[in-house]
Design a protein around this nucleic acid. Structure first.
Lengths: 341, 341
DNA sequence: ACGCCTTTTGCACGCGCGTGCAACACATTT
DNA sequence: AAATGTGTTGCACGCGCGTGCAAAAGGCGT
């Protein structure tokens, strides 16, 4: 800092010992005063807190983490910054976590091969849990996670996984997709195209599969489908353009069902601006997630909203739980009908 | 985890001592093997690394942080998740940081009064620096930061600050705004409206001020301007609608210059979809940041791109620097001309 | 006022590693 | 062969706090 000559000029680190001396108690009493459910008399606590305030003391979580088995720190691994929904998830998660005393280590898994190193990285900081909210993980990566030192809970957020070593907190993709499919048929659409994201080994969303299965069961035919290599509006715009412009109008789908909004936004751009067609009159579009842009007059996207706040709160419950049982849980979301379908 | 009975069944924590025993050296030699510029013979290092690999050892950064004065951890305080540019910044920053061995603590400053607590929170984790990339800080907050224990570097990213106790890494707002203003006049616009974000006590962007001053100097008149209370497209859409719909067409601006893209996107939505006017023919719009949506056919926004990667890399340079001098630095960006102005 | 029970307080030890220096080994020089 | 220098290795101590238990203090009834 420019106002001071160097580290030496800062007030010396004030530790619990200093506060103890000032308050006339032992160091342990000081730390106890800062613990919620500690056995300490109100008078002593007040005395300690006063001394702490005047000295500017706050407990060192880093030392606490070393001494105890808990760090109250979680790692959040993210690999997909092109999807605007990630920003929403980051907000909800960090809000829920910080509101209940947890800190968040944001780890950018830089590329496809970086997930395992990123996991190790997190474990070096003694995190109590690692949360995956991306796509680039498969069983191999999960294996790496488990061999990582001090590995504790591995939580897969907003994505279902059947891996028994992970805790999956997600919307019920099957129920949600069935609701979407029912809506699609009820509104009379009959030639759907399903636009899916990348297909990883594990942790599938089960949305595409469910939709196709529903359609087969209902109409006996397999709908068209296509995979985009990332949940990126730019890529889905390009991909859908490539697919649609080669076809005559008569072979166009009447609705495009997208695995999520990131894909749907790109698809709408293609339909409106490249093909010069109307949404929903010529081709309807439906998404998943309810990102903020859905509300925009450019999209007015019909989509399915996940109860993110509820899910984030449950995640913290999981962190604080010591139960050994299966903590997987799915949530019910809500179909948000706008004008795009 | 479901496959194991509990924490006890995990392989015991393997520490440097274990590796030392396996490799037949002292613990200190083991840790040295993991340090880049340590004085150790290649043969010994190889021996240690082999033992470490077979035991699955990796150094504990948490303990290292406690023992030394460095943690290689920074806190990133964010308060404005409505602005899509934040996601881009998060990506670039975490990429630059992690690429050079730094971990990132993401701290959501939940509301206006939470900035100071968030700062304290960060200091509890022994971060080597705190980076502010939001808006809700004023001199009072910075003061709080400085009285926080173990406070080191306070970096203001993507925002200029003259506070001598902070390090500001930002684009040169004055030069950038002048370039924008010159472009606006060169293209013949003469009735600009400036849409600014919230005005905080310190850390102004200097964009509004520079633009108004430029215009006064050039034409002798003060352009219209308005402030939106947050960098949120929804709010700027509402705000610009309220302003414009009360005016007759003849009193509309011919261009709306926005402090950043988040505001500009909302403004375009209002012009096109609420007022049913054309961009740029009726009203042109110009932004700042170059968020991904600028590229979308819905916006095609002319804007000013900050060299975020370069700025992020410089930020890491700052973290690794021990110089006492002024580390503030501004960068030159680039005007990206699209069709909106 | 005494004994018993409950609440509150104090403490030895350890979490895993870094710092700074001392000791050591080996290669080179005279 | 001894002395000098360079590179390498080992170690005492401490970072700040939590755990688990023992000691002390306070409260109650008879």
């Amino acid at each position: 800092m420019k106002t001071s000559a160097g580290p030496a000029s800062f007030p010396a680190n004030v530790t619990a010992d200093d506060v103890a001396a000032a308050a006339g108690v032992s160091r342990w009493t000081v730390n106890r005063a800062f613990k919620k459910e500690a056995s300490i008399s109100p008078a002593t606590r007040e005395k300690v807190m006063t001394a702490a305030r005047s000295l500017g003391y706050i407990p060192d979580l880093s030392a606490a983490a070393l001494a105890s088995a808990r760090s109250n720190l979680v790692a959040l691994l993210v690999d997909d910054f092109a999807n605007p929904h990630k920003l929403v998830m980051l907000e909800r998660l960090t809000r829920a976590l910080r509101g209940r005393g947890w800190d968040t280590l944001l780890v950018n898994t830089l590329d496809r091969d970086d997930t395992a190193p990123a996991l190790l990285n997190a474990s070096q900081r003694r995190v109590d849990a690692t949360i995956l909210i991306g796509i680039q993980f498969d069983d191999e990566v999960l294996e790496a996670a488990h061999s990582a030192r001090r590995f504790k809970k591995l939580i897969i957020f907003a994505r279902t996984s059947e891996n028994p070593d992970t805790i999956s907190i997600a919307v019920d993709d099957v129920a949600a997709t069935r609701e979407i499919a029912r809506y699609v048929t009820d509104r009379g659409y009959r030639r759907p195209l399903y636009v899916a994201g990348p297909r990883t080994v594990s942790a599938h969303l089960m949305r595409k599969e469910t939709f196709l299965e529903f359609w087969r069961g209902r109409f006996g035919v397999e709908p068209d489908s296509v995979s985009v290599e990332a949940y990126d509006p730019i890529l889905s715009a390009a991909c859908s353009l490539e697919l649609l412009e080669t076809r005559p109008r008569s072979e166009h789908p009447d609705i495009i069902v997208c695995e999520n909004d990131a894909l749907a936004l790109g698809v709408i751009d293609t339909i409106r601006h490249r093909l010069k067609l109307r949404v929903p009159e010529d081709i309807a579009v439906i998404g998943f997630d309810d990102v903020p842009q859905c509300e925009s007059p450019n999209y007015r996207l019909t989509t399915y909203r996940q109860p993110l706040t509820e899910m984030a709160n449950y995640l913290v419950d999981v962190l604080e739980s010591t139960e050994a049982g299966n903590l997987d849980r799915t949530f019910e979301g809500q179909l948000i009908v706008r004008e795009s379908a």
